[in-house]
């Protein structure tokens, strides 16, 4: 329950911090921290426009996408306290629920019969497919390291003691951050601020969404960032008491948002056909973590 509230709280300012960091880095004053939330609320109040080729799939897709992110959020724990949903192997449920959301957001884009939206849909499907093994190898390694198989138990018993486990924790945080970037279609892969349909990934999929549906999609994006931020925080939280953990959580989230903002300010996006290579590199980093975990657990012969 605690994680649920904290993730929502973090989601409220995460994207705001990213935008603020970017604007300050480029020498602008920039909008307030809660501007993204205000945008979404404005969208929720608006009417909608549908494409004439679309069917009920297009109407229901944003709702299912948002619900999938919402249910995935319930799985994520906060330090010692479980998420609302917790069982052995819950991270598989987490990944597959998000997968269902993605499935619907893709067919929602295909439903408009547009010449662009399929492009973004195919890229989204391809990139998330490539990112999948990184997540699973990483979770498998953490299961190997701790001997547990649910998010909460893994994070509760993940003690960062020796220098090698710190290295593993750092690498794992990197992988999760990059997965978050892929899931949200952020900078090294996709520029959310681009204005050319041919080079967009996520943005081009939602060209035809408007009003409440667009609001749902944007909110889901904010939540996703906060979810991955929470996972990264859990990597390091260990057994510290709530009095320290809650402020630390907010600081970690703010720091991650700052990092994302800095990456977006100072990096150029990759060439489209190099994205696949970049994502596959994540899997090899995960493999590194796996071999590190083998070493630590003394099973490396």
């Amino acid at each position: 329950m605690l994680s649920f509230l904290l993730i929502i709280l973090a989601a409220a300012f995460f994207t705001g911090i990213i935008i603020r960091t970017k604007s300050i880095a480029s020498g602008r004053k920039g909008p307030g921290l809660f501007q993204p939330i205000k945008d979404v609320i404005r969208l929720f109040k608006k009417g909608t426009v549908y494409s004439e080729t679309s069917s009920f799939v297009f109407r229901i897709a944003p709702t299912i996408y948002f619900s999938s992110v919402f249910v995935a959020m319930l799985v994520v724990p906060f330090g010692q306290s479980k998420g609302l949903i917790s069982f052995n192997g819950d991270f598989i449920f987490f990944a597959y629920v998000l997968g269902l959301g993605k499935f619907f957001s893709i067919i929602g884009a295909m439903d408009t019969g547009s010449s662009f939206e399929g492009m973004g849909a195919s890229r989204e499907a391809l990139y998330s497919m490539f990112a999948e093994p990184a997540f699973f190898i990483l979770m498998g390694s953490l299961a190997l390291l701790t001997g547990h198989t649910s998010f909460q138990e893994i994070f509760a018993t993940l003690h960062l003691g020796s220098s090698i486990t710190y290295a593993l924790g750092g690498l794992a945080a990197l992988v999760f951050l990059m997965i978050a970037m892929i899931e949200n279609s952020r900078m090294p892969l996709d520029d959310p601020k681009t204005h050319l349909e041919l080079t967009m990934v996520h943005e081009v999929m939602i060209l035809d969404n408007s009003g409440f549906d667009l609001g749902l999609i944007l909110t889901a994006g904010y939540l996703k960032f906060a979810i991955y931020g929470a996972i990264i925080f859990n990597l390091f939280s260990g057994t510290i008491s709530y009095g320290y953990a809650i402020p630390m959580f907010l600081v970690v989230q703010a720091f991650l948002a700052f990092v994302v903002g800095m990456i977006e300010s100072f990096m150029a996006r990759f060439r489209m056909n190099h994205n696949a290579q970049f994502i596959v590199v994540l899997s090899s980093v995960s493999l590194l973590i796996f071999f590190g975990a083998l070493l630590v657990s003394g099973k490396f012969i």
């Binding site: 069917s55 499935f103 295909m110 439903d111 399929g118 499907a125 998330s128 093994p133």
Partner: peptide
């Protein structure tokens, strides 16, 4: 662990395959 990763790729690819098939046959015009 490698099978784990393989199975997840299979899952990801089947999303791609079936969104493509469903999208092309049933959606659009």
């Amino acid at each position: 662990v490698l099978t784990f990763a393989g199975l997840s790729i299979i899952g990801g690819l089947s999303v791609l395959t079936f969104t493509k098939t469903f999208g092309t046959i049933f959606l659009g015009t």
